[in-house]
């Protein structure tokens, strides 16, 4: 059995969380609130050290002390000022100002995400689907079947996601095939992830029986 107090605390909290499997109880509530409290505290410290200090405080300070040009002070003030608008929510009279940083964030986020989605979800997938057909003569029978199945899967699944067309007749048939392809994909992903979760459980049980109780080596 472990003599390390840290291991005992970790084991106790693990059991507290596991007790939720029976029902909600004071031990689970204690662990839950501790977990949330610690994570929020840690998050605040992280935000200060990885956000406020390097991106706001340090550039402003460097500009004032002459380590960086003065124009950087004003350039840094722009995002800092926009960030401060989030606090306008605390003053009901000026709470409408919060819409500006929100609009900037959503606009920037969409602008950042759309080209990336276009690249990874369309261009790379299209390239991967088409490429085998360019070298079809050098492929084995199995690889050709794989490439054709991939093409059929993409066409059928894409058809399923047409929303402005009624899914009847040919379109209905193709989209039904599409949903079958989707479910096969989800089934394999499910099995794969369950295996991952089981290994996480094994790791926790190993900690309890090995590191804490010392029953298994």
């Amino acid at each position: 059995m472990s003599t390390d107090i840290g291991v005992w605390i970790a084991a106790f909290l693990t059991l507290c969380i596991f007790s939720f499997l029976y029902k909600d109880n004071p031990f689970y509530k204690f662990a839950e609130h501790l977990f949330v409290g610690v994570s929020v505290g840690y998050g605040i410290v992280l935000t200060i050290h990885q956000g406020i200090i390097p991106f706001a405080w340090q550039p402003l300070k460097n500009s004032i002390t002459g380590e960086a040009p003065l124009w950087r002070f004003f350039v840094t003030l722009i995002p800092v000022g926009v960030g401060f608008l989030f606090f306008s929510r605390l003053m009901p009279r000026y709470s409408w100002l919060i819409r500006y940083p929100i609009a900037i964030l959503i606009g920037m986020g969409a602008g950042f995400a759309i080209p990336r989605a276009m690249e990874t979800s369309i261009f790379e997938q299209m390239n991967g689907t088409l490429r085998p057909f360019g070298v079809i003569n050098s492929l084995s029978a199995g690889e050709i079947i794989g490439a054709v199945l991939m093409l059929i899967g993409v066409v059928c699944t894409l058809t399923y996601f047409f929303f402005s067309v009624e899914h009847k007749g040919i379109v209905g048939g193709i989209s039904k095939l599409g949903i079958i392809f989707l479910m096969i994909g989800f089934g394999s992903a499910f099995g794969n992830t369950v295996m991952g979760r089981v290994s996480l459980l094994i790791q926790r049980v190993d900690f309890l029986l090995g590191d804490w109780l010392g029953i298994v080596g």
Partner: peptide, 23 residues
């Protein structure tokens, strides 16, 4: 995708080149 597949089989790689160039 459909046009590109037919072209690829006949050795014309315009469509795949377009998508490859971008990815």
């Amino acid at each position: 995708l459909l046009v590109g597949t037919v072209l690829e089989i006949f050795g014309v790689h315009w469509v795949s080149t377009f998508f490859q160039a971008a990815s």
